[in-house]
Design a protein around this nucleic acid. Structure first.
Lengths: 225, 225
DNA sequence: CATCACTCCCTAACGCTGTTAGGGGCCACG
DNA sequence: CGTGGCCCCTAACAGCGTTAGGGAGTGATG
């Protein structure tokens, strides 16, 4: 009798999704198993298959649940500020929810929340003066980039048997590694060791986003950039 | 007696890597197990742990093996053409080796071959007139983007219980899905259904790369773009 | 020659995974 | 009262990464 209620309400897909979200936060994507999700809702693993076709469908639900917490930036300022904010918020979202980048990039599942985001982005891009085709491509470009960036940003470093796990320490170690390469075959890596191992990922992201926004701006007539 | 030799040469990490590469090509990353790799070299699974610390180390070797087949584009024409070629070739490489994008993005393992690529890219960027910091960032940006793009490009579509698995059919189905959305809440998705589901991924990639190159070009003094 | 250390592979096992088959209470409807 | 659908169960299957411990073969050392 683990419950004080004599009957527990039947499971819903939403409850299941929320439970999976908790397990994901606690144990990460690698630790997210059907058995743990089942235990989280007080049920055995096989029972999940009544509500969900398989694990992938649960991950699809997770994807949309993550996207649900995305809220569009304020609609003020130029299109550049707005899309800069969009990118920053999307990155934040992926960073704040554990392993969200891996979950989202594992499947292209346009759930209702993602559709809403796309709709909003397209509206702003067209209002900014982008052609239909360019607007469609721009949303794709920004989405793919932010996802790729965060994935890269979060991917573990191979040589990291380093004790100090802080960004700073890792960057220092990587810098030393670059500097200790043979200078005759890798002159540029040696010379740019410091630049290559910039530990401030926010600054890196900033740079990249600004370049992409510059590239998009070049599509507009000069007076609308 | 599966061998005509009475003794087989002892395993090397290189032989093991090549075997893993074959299994990867045949069964994909999800089907790549230590047992299968062991069988591929005619050995039992536990024996692999003599040559390799764990599966992740094998994947790191795989990553560098994939990067080994990357060859830099010819050093002729402007920096734009050169880096356009770099991006296209990197994408081709990721597309041609099964699940290469997933393997590569799972770990940040700067093996010798990746170091060589970075060295070469930095050299060209500096020659083109980019500052040290900008050159370092640019390699990062291009790498992260291409990886993100291919990952997105290859991620399976959730609603694809569709029979016709061709790009064209999937795009058509997705287009129909967009068009059948309620036009009052998703006017842009409905209107741009065709543009959003452009099936020619080469064209999509082309667009994105050109935008990023435009953005990078803006860093240069006008006379060197 | 005997002994030791080292290399390289083995068997056996542990605890985990996703998924299916089949069964059994329970509740509403005819 | 019976029947059918809902919702969960137990049991099991085949596979996974990984470890412990053993046992042949080889080459150097006493």
């Amino acid at each position: 009798m683990p419950e004080n209620d004599d009957t527990t309400p039947p499971l819903t897909r939403e409850a299941l999704t929320q439970a999976a979200l908790r397990v994901l936060e606690r144990d990460g994507l690698a630790g997210l198993s059907m058995r743990k999700v089942a235990a989280e809702v007080g049920v055995k693993a096989a029972s999940l298959y009544w509500h969900v076709r398989n694990k992938q469908e649960l991950l699809d639900l997770l994807t949309d649940a993550v996207m649900a917490s995305a809220e569009p930036p304020p609609r003020e300022g130029g299109w550049r500020e707005q899309f800069h904010a969009y990118c920053s918020r999307y990155r934040r979202l992926l960073l704040d929810n554990r392993d969200a980048a891996k979950v989202v990039s594992g499947r292209l599942a346009p759930g209702p929340h993602l559709l809403a985001v796309m709709e909003d982005q397209l509206d702003r891009l067209r209002a900014a003066g982008f052609s239909d085709a360019d607007a469609a491509m721009a949303t794709y470009l920004l989405g793919a980039f932010v996802q790729g960036f965060v994935l890269q940003e979060q991917s573990p470093i191979s040589a990291a048997e380093v004790l100090g796990t802080s960004r700073r320490d890792i960057a220092d170690a990587a810098g030393d590694r670059f500097r200790s390469l043979p200078a005759d075959t890798f002159p540029n890596l040696v010379a740019l060791a410091g630049d290559l191992t910039e530990p401030d990922m926010d600054a890196r992201f900033e740079f990249c986003v600004q370049r992409i926004l510059d590239g998009l701006a070049a599509l507009l007539p000069v007076d609308r950039r």
